Simulated assay, not measured.
Amino acid sequence: MESDYRVPTALGTLAWTVALVVLLVRGEGLADGERWWIWVCAAGIALGVFGFFYVPYLLGRREAAERRRDGERASGSEATDNGPRA
């Protein structure tokens, strides 16, 4: 049983977005040594958006491969069942 990937992906992306907004609102109050967190948030948002669009593609490819594999198994078993038996 597979779970719905969209909810955790959307929540994670939303959390990174909120964190980015908080950091940007702080603006100049953010220490120079802590500014790298802005890029961490941006990367989290980018990865979340990428995952949201890539996972359906990945699931579709996986499903197509399973159908293809099942089709090969079915045609392979028919070929051996129809042959002469010794």
Rank of each mutant, 00 (worst) to 15 (best):
residue 23 L to N: 12
residue 47 L to D: 03
residue 73 R to G: 04
residue 27 G to Q: 00
residue 18 V to R: 03
residue 12 G to D: 00
residue 70 D to P: 08
residue 72 E to T: 11
residue 47 L to F: 05
residue 51 G to V: 00
residue 50 F to A: 12
residue 60 G to R: 14
residue 80 T to I: 15
residue 2 E to M: 12
residue 3 S to N: 12
residue 9 T to W: 03
residue 61 R to I: 09
residue 29 G to R: 14
residue 42 A to Q: 03
residue 69 R to N: 11
residue 60 G to E: 10
residue 35 R to T: 05
residue 35 R to H: 06
residue 54 Y to C: 02
residue 25 V to A: 06
residue 36 W to M: 11
residue 23 L to P: 01
residue 46 A to W: 00
residue 72 E to L: 15
residue 40 V to F: 06
residue 57 Y to M: 15
residue 40 V to N: 09
residue 26 R to H: 08
residue 65 A to G: 02
residue 15 A to Q: 07
residue 2 E to A: 13
residue 80 T to Q: 01
residue 29 G to N: 12
residue 21 V to Y: 14
residue 74 A to T: 01
residue 23 L to A: 11
residue 70 D to S: 14
residue 82 N to K: 15
residue 69 R to E: 10
residue 70 D to W: 14
residue 57 Y to H: 14
residue 49 V to R: 02
residue 66 E to R: 14
residue 79 A to T: 13
residue 55 V to I: 05
residue 73 R to N: 03
residue 64 A to N: 01
residue 46 A to K: 09
residue 21 V to I: 14
residue 8 P to I: 07
residue 27 G to P: 00
residue 81 D to A: 15
residue 77 S to Y: 10
residue 85 R to P: 01
residue 47 L to Q: 05
residue 70 D to Y: 10
residue 7 V to I: 15
residue 80 T to N: 12
residue 1 M to V: 15
residue 72 E to N: 13
residue 18 V to F: 01
residue 49 V to I: 14
residue 79 A to M: 12
residue 1 M to R: 12
residue 15 A to R: 04
residue 47 L to E: 05
residue 24 L to D: 02
residue 8 P to S: 05
residue 19 A to I: 07
residue 4 D to V: 11
residue 28 E to H: 08
residue 83 G to P: 00
residue 63 E to W: 07
residue 62 R to M: 08
residue 23 L to G: 03
residue 39 W to Q: 01
residue 1 M to Y: 13
residue 22 V to F: 05
residue 74 A to C: 07
residue 48 G to M: 02
residue 53 F to S: 03
residue 37 W to K: 15
residue 30 L to N: 05
residue 58 L to Q: 13
residue 65 A to V: 08
residue 58 L to Y: 13
residue 81 D to G: 13
residue 55 V to A: 05
residue 72 E to G: 12
residue 10 A to G: 10
residue 15 A to E: 03
residue 31 A to S: 06
residue 27 G to I: 07
residue 11 L to K: 09
residue 43 A to D: 01
residue 74 A to V: 10
residue 24 L to T: 08
residue 52 F to Q: 11
residue 50 F to V: 15
residue 3 S to A: 13
residue 23 L to R: 05
residue 53 F to V: 14
residue 56 P to L: 02
residue 19 A to G: 12
residue 75 S to Q: 14
residue 56 P to N: 04
residue 51 G to D: 05
residue 56 P to C: 06
residue 18 V to Q: 01
residue 46 A to I: 06
residue 67 R to H: 03
residue 65 A to Y: 02
residue 43 A to Q: 00
residue 71 G to K: 11
residue 9 T to F: 09
residue 32 D to K: 14
residue 33 G to I: 03
residue 68 R to L: 07
residue 62 R to D: 09
residue 85 R to Y: 02
residue 7 V to L: 12
residue 65 A to I: 07
residue 69 R to T: 02
residue 8 P to W: 04
residue 67 R to Q: 10
residue 5 Y to M: 04
residue 42 A to V: 15
residue 17 T to W: 01
residue 61 R to G: 01
residue 80 T to S: 15
residue 82 N to L: 09
residue 2 E to K: 13
residue 67 R to M: 03
residue 65 A to C: 04
residue 56 P to A: 06
residue 11 L to H: 10
residue 20 L to D: 00
